[in-house]
Structures are given as C-alpha cells and as structure tokens.
C-alpha cells in the first residue's frame, strides 16, 4: 500500500524550489558582475552587492526548514540525504553569491578607470562557470548523475583558463609596472571565478551522493 507523506513531501518540494531560486540568483549575479566588470559600471556592481542579502536569507530559510523537517518528520534514507544535501548546496550557493559580490567589489574599486586590456579569457571562464551553476542545478533537479559528474571536466577547463589569465597578467605587469594594481585586482577576479566553479563541482558531488548514497571526489 502506497502512503502519502504530505507534510514531508511538501517540505522537500519547498527545499527544492528554494535551491533552484538560489541557483538562478547566483547565475544572474555572476553574469551581472562580469558585465559590470567589462563596462566598469560601479553602480551596477553596487546593486549586485545589495542583492546578495536575498541569497543569505534563502540560505537561512533552507537551514531552518531542513532542521524543522528533521525534528518533526524524522526523515531517513533518501529523504534524509535530500535534506543533508540541501544544507550543503545552500552553503555552496551562498558562497558563490559572496564570490560574485567580491567581483562586484573589484568593479567598485576600478570606478573611473579604463581597463588595462580587453578581457577575453576571463569572460570565457565566467561563461563556463555560469554554465556549471546552471547544469549543477539541472543535475540536481533531474537527479542526473552523468551531468553532475561532468562538473569535474568543466572545472578542469576553468582551472586551465585561470592559469592562462594569470600568465597573461604577469606578462603585462612585467612589461608595464603601472598596470600592477589593476592587474592584481583582475587576477583576483580570476581566482573568484575559479572558486565559483569549485562550488558548482561540490554541488555535482552532492547530487551524486543524493542519488547513489556514495561520496565521489570530483574536485581533483
């Protein structure tokens, strides 16, 4: 006989909706931050920083909802794993939001300056990282282990691009020391994007754990 557990199921659906919302906000925040960087648009950057509050609230509400469900519904097995990964995913997404804010803060520091070079690899990195955010959430929604594991390869691409970005910036700084301050800031942006990709990879790991109960290591 099949039994409905409405309270528990409703809670799990709500958790999922909140995580999807966090994912789309983070994706937007990263893409806005990169646009703001390319345009050196400090106002837009400030708006991104202000928006981050909502992500923090969502993370808190996921923590509270998950804790309440554990206390009142005694979930086990896959239900329990769903809640455990919701905590972890919310943490990863919140950190990604913070990293987008860090990019926006760089833009605020650059206010009034012209970029020392046209950005090519950095937007490419951000594009892959953004796609990783999207696909990691997709893999969660559809419990798609293959897509979740693909994060590892995408992450390698981001890491490789990051190395290029750093090498280019070093060359620039050696050629023209007056670029050092800005090149330093831009290399931080590269670092932030690289970290975002790591967190997306963590989400891939969470999805594999949800579906299989095993903990993979995708962040190599």
């Amino acid at each position: 006989m099949v039994i409905k557990r409405k309270e528990l199921d409703d809670g799990l659906v709500l958790l999922k909706e909140k995580l999807i919302e966090m994912g789309s906000r983070v994706e937007q925040s990263l893409s806005d931050a990169m646009q703001a960087l390319q345009d050196v648009d400090a106002d837009r950057a400030r708006a991104i920083i202000a928006e981050d509050k909502k992500l923090n609230q969502l993370e808190e509400s996921i923590d509270e909802l998950g804790a309440r469900m554990i206390a009142t519904q005694q979930p086990v097995a896959k239900d329990l794993r769903r809640i455990l990964i919701a905590f972890k995913m919310a943490g990863d997404l919140e950190r990604m939001g913070d990293l987008s804010v860090d990019i926006a803060k760089v833009v605020v520091r650059l206010e009034g300056q012209k970029l020392i070079k046209p950005l090519i690899d950095l937007p490419r990195m951000a594009e892959i990282a953004g796609q990783m955010i999207h696909e990691s959430i997709d893999s969660y929604v559809h419990e798609n282990v293959n897509l979740a594991c693909k994060m590892a390869q995408d992450d390698d691409q981001v890491d490789a691009l990051f190395s290029e970005v750093i090498r280019d910036l070093f060359e620039l700084m050696i050629e023209n020391p007056s670029t050092i301050t800005q090149a330093g800031l831009i290399s931080f942006v590269g670092r932030y994007i690289e970290r975002i990709a790591d967190h997306a990879t963590n989400i891939g790991e969470s999805v594999v754990y949800l579906v299989t109960g095993k903990r993979p290591e995708l962040n190599m």
Partner: peptide, 20 residues
C-alpha cells in the same frame, strides 16, 4: 546502511513511511 542508504527501493519506501 539500511537507514541511510538502503540498496532496495522497497526498503527505502518502507522506512521512509511511504509504503507499508
């Protein structure tokens, strides 16, 4: 193992209170 990651779906459904 049974209560965190059972091998059989029927077990999962039963201990989750979804079937019984």
């Amino acid at each position: 193992k049974i209560f965190t990651n059972p091998s059989e779906k029927a077990t999962d459904d039963y201990i989750s209170g979804r079937f019984g």
